[in-house]
Design a protein around this nucleic acid. Structure first.
Lengths: 229, 229
DNA sequence: TGAAACTGTTACGTAACCGTCACAAAAGCT
DNA sequence: AGCTTTTGTGACGGTTACGTAACAGTTTCA
């Protein structure tokens, strides 16, 4: 709570996944605290007062559900937003059913772009100053919170994948993303999808962006990937 | 870490499996170092500093687990990503439980596509694709992140090979590169291409750089090669 | 439960790009 | 000057990367 940058607590027992998460959060400019299980998490919460908690559901010792429940009991920790990670859709339903009070849910394998957007969205609730939920490029505006995209004031209809793809591209306009890193960021880490699929979705995104006129803002860099502008 | 292409160390005691792995990795453009047991692996790590290690769990002498544990103890090798191979799901669980600090796990029999994807994913974590390199020489500016080249503020259109060729030359202005070393650097290690091809691409690069006026910045060093400036 | 929306893959046409060659031009050598 | 070696470059066939329509399987939602 004290520092410049928001502090995100990552609670995940599997070290590889924990580090991937931490890596991406740090790349976004957050400070990161790590916990490998629920008990460690409770200690760190008391100690460091994180601004957001990303919490794995399935963990040894103290499960994510239990951690969440305990946090929401105490007034001084009740307001810290919790984003729950779980492996399957059914589990999300179950977690919801348990009324743990988590503020958001993300299903594994998650898209990095999406998770970052949700972390930012939660932060914005608590710290209205933190920016980044609203991305702009030229006359294109993307609002991660409301999941809406408009161009020149006109609302655009995008599918979920096209939305995340555009969000990834808008995150750093001009930067060239390889098909592989787009797959990584937009589709998710453990999904094995043909790289040509990226081309198809880029095509769909282009069609949506230019439906009502306007130049194609997506640049193809032959042999390298795609970029915005 | 030194070379152009990432170096992958394959540690696997069974020679057939080791060669299959190596073959596929080389087909993907990686350089490959091979080790038949843990002790050899430790030596090769110290010697060659691989970018990624693919490590079999079950091995004579020094097991994969022990290799991994030792690697993660020393600061200079801690950050090298390790992908563990093991024979069964239960073993993966056991390896995980041992907290060896491996960065990813793959169960045998693995899909080659999947393993390649994981190797690439780990590499991306460590080598964030030539992040934000901006090269300048006189009025020429090359931005690796956006894949853009401009001269005197005017954007230039370069093909992929010309782009990489210019990047290589700009990395060390004034230095004379032989055709062979340019082939190595720009085209890749074991590509069978005539050295005269370099001349042709130098010509194309010159044409692009001088299209809108300005002196030819590429110097021919007769009998030796080319240099910038 | 259907209908609609969305997804990943495939196939095919096209345009850009690549490597080689042949010959011209330039540079060095005697 | 003549001769040899090296480099510049236009032309050309072959290859590859990309754009996109079509399609089948799946999910979502009324």
């Amino acid at each position: 709570m004290a520092g410049d940058q928001p502090l995100v607590l990552v609670v995940e027992d599997e070290s590889a996944q924990r580090e991937v998460l931490a890596y991406n959060l740090e790349a976004e400019g957050f400070r990161v605290a790590r916990a490998a299980d629920g008990e460690e998490a409770m200690l760190l919460v008391a100690e460091d007062r994180p601004d957001v908690i990303v919490l794995d559901w399935m963990m040894p010792r103290l499960s994510g559900i239990e951690v969440c429940r305990r946090l929401k009991l105490r007034p001084e920790t009740r307001t810290i937003p919790v984003i729950m990670l779980s492996a399957r859709t059914e589990e999300v339903d179950r977690v919801r059913g348990l009324e743990t009070g988590a503020d958001d849910y993300v299903v594994k394998p998650y898209s990095v772009v999406e998770l970052m957007a949700r972390v930012k969205a939660q932060l914005r609730r608590v710290r209205p100053a933190s920016a980044g939920v609203r991305l702009e490029f030229g006359d294109i505006v993307l609002d991660a919170e409301t999941h809406r995209v408009s161009r020149a004031g006109r609302e655009l209809k995008l599918g979920p994948t096209e939305f995340r793809l555009l969000a990834a591209l808008m995150e750093r306009p001009g930067r060239v993303w390889s098909r592989e890193s787009l797959l990584d960021r937009v589709w998710g880490r453990d999904v094995y999808v043909d790289t040509r699929t990226v081309d198809v979705h880029i095509g769909r995104l282009r069609k949506a962006l230019t439906r009502h006129g306007g130049a194609d803002p997506v640049r193809t860099v032959r042999g390298a990937g795609y970029a915005l502008g």
